[in-house]
Design a protein around this nucleic acid. Structure first.
Lengths: 210, 210
DNA sequence: TGCTGTGCGTACCGATCGGTACCCCCTTCG
DNA sequence: CGAAGGGGGTACCGATCGGTACGCACAGCA
C-alpha cells in the first residue's frame, strides 16, 4: 500500500514509465507486454524481473495514479487554511485544469475498473479501495463547511468530478471543465443556502451509509 | 443507423441476446466469440453468418443500447406535456431507477468507449455520435425551461447522469441514484433562480459551442 | 588472468484470440 | 424417391496473448 514505485534497475525504470504512459493512452488490456517491452527498448524478461506479472504492473500503475489526487487534496488544504470554500474551489479548479489538458482520457482508475469488470480482480479491488479513500478525504474537506449533510455534498461533488472526467472523453474537455466548476459552485451554494435558512425547498438527503 | 436489430435466423437471435448480455456483464473485449457461441448453444460460424465480425456485433450492440435512452426521453415528454420540470424529473428519476437495478454496471456506451480508446474505431465513433444526439435531445427538453443558458444546464445534467452512472460501479448504487436526483434538483433550481432574479451570485456560464 | 554473480535480450512455450474451410443434416420440390 | 439448397456444427487456421528457459556480456574480486 505504502509501496512507492521506485524501480531499481534502469530497464525496470524505463518499463515503468512506458507502461504508465501506454496503460493510460491505450488502456491496460490493449497494451501488450511485447509492446511495452519494445517501446521501452528492453526485452520482455526485464519486465518480469521488475514486476510479478502484467496484473502486478497494472496494480502498481493504478496505485501510483491515485497518489497525485490525494496530494492535490492535501495541497488544497494547505493552500487555503481555514477557508474550506476556497479549498474546494482549489480542488475542483485543479481537476478542471487537469481535464482540459491535451491527451486527457478520463480517470485512470475508472478506466481500469471498466477494463476489469470482475469484482474479484485485484486491480478492480484496488480501484474501489483507492476511490473510497479519496471520497473520504474529500468528504472531510467538505465537512469544514457549515452544511447540514456534508456526506451528501461530498458524494455529489465526487459524482460531478467523475461525470466531468468521463464526459471529457465523449464531448468536449473545455465544456466539461467549465461545467464542472459551475456545477460545483451551484451545488455548494445550494447546500450553504439550505443550512443558513430554516426551511428548504430541497428535501434533506436521507442517505445512509453503505 | 435506423437498422433495428431483428435477426432472422434462430441461432442469430440467440447469439444476439447472449452477446448483448455478455458484452454488458463482462465487457466487449473480455467476451470472446467462442464464449458467446458456447453460451448461445451455437457454433462460431453462426455468429459470422449473422454479423460481419466481432466489431460489427459490438457496433450493433452499442447502437441497440442507445435506443431505450432515446425512447425514455420521448416518453418523458409525452408523460408530462407542457411541464418541462416534471419531464426532467421523469427522465432523471428513470435513470436513477435504472442505476439502482441489480447488475447495473455503468452506461454501456461509456464502457464501450473506454474499452476502445482509439478514436478512429467504429465503436468509439458510434458512441460519440449517439451521445451527442442524446445530449441534443436532453438539451431540447431543458430548453423548455425558463432558464437563460439552457445548453449549459443540459450539459451539466448530462454530466451528473454520467457521474452517477460511473460512480455506481465504484461506490454505492443507492447513494448514486439518490445523489443524482438531489443534485439535479439543486442545479435546476439554481438555474431557475438565476433567471427569475436580476442579479446572480453565480456567474453566468461563458461556454460557447466548440 | 580466471572465476563468479548479476542483469540483459533472443527465442521459444502453451493458451487463446478472431475468423474460416468443410461437411453434414434436414427440408423442399420435382 | 431422388436431387438440390441452405442453415447448422466440427475442426482447423494464422496471429497474438502473457510468460519463461537459456545463454551471453560484463561487472567485481582474487
Amino acid at each position: 500500500m505504502a509501496d512507492v514505485e521506485t524501480r531499481r534497475s534502469p530497464a525496470g525504470q524505463r518499463v515503468w514509465e512506458t507502461a504508465c504512459e501506454l496503460f493510460y493512452r491505450e488502456g491496460i488490456r490493449s497494451a501488450g507486454v511485447a509492446e511495452i517491452a519494445e517501446r521501452s527498448g528492453v526485452g520482455k524478461p526485464s519486465i518480469y524481473r521488475n514486476f510479478e506479472s502484467k496484473d502486478g504492473l497494472a496494480l502498481a500503475y493504478v496505485n501510483a495514479k491515485a497518489v497525485p489526487a490525494r496530494d492535490w487534496l492535501a495541497a488544497a488544504r494547505a493552500a487555503c487554511p481555514g477557508d474550506p470554500r476556497a479549498q474546494l474551489r482549489h480542488v475542483i479548479g485543479g481537476i478542471a485544469d487537469q481535464i482540459s489538458e491535451p491527451g486527457y482520457r478520463g480517470c485512470p482508475l475508472v478506466n481500469a475498473s471498466v477494463e476489469f469488470p470482475d469484482h474479484e480482480h485485484p486491480v478492480r479491488k484496488a480501484v474501489v479501495s483507492l476511490k473510497a479513500e479519496y471520497l473520504d478525504l474529500l468528504t472531510e474537506l467538505v465537512a469544514q463547511l457549515p452544511v447540514r449533510d456534508h456526506r451528501a455534498l461530498g458524494y455529489m461533488l465526487q459524482m460531478l468530478v467523475e461525470g466531468a472526467s468521463v464526459t471529457t472523453q465523449i464531448y468536449s474537455a473545455d465544456r466539461s471543465a467549465a461545467s464542472l466548476k459551475e456545477a460545483a459552485d451551484r451545488v455548494i451554494d445550494s447546500f450553504l443556502a439550505d443550512s443558513s435558512t430554516a426551511g428548504s425547498s430541497v428535501p434533506d438527503s436521507s442517505l445512509e451509509e453503505r
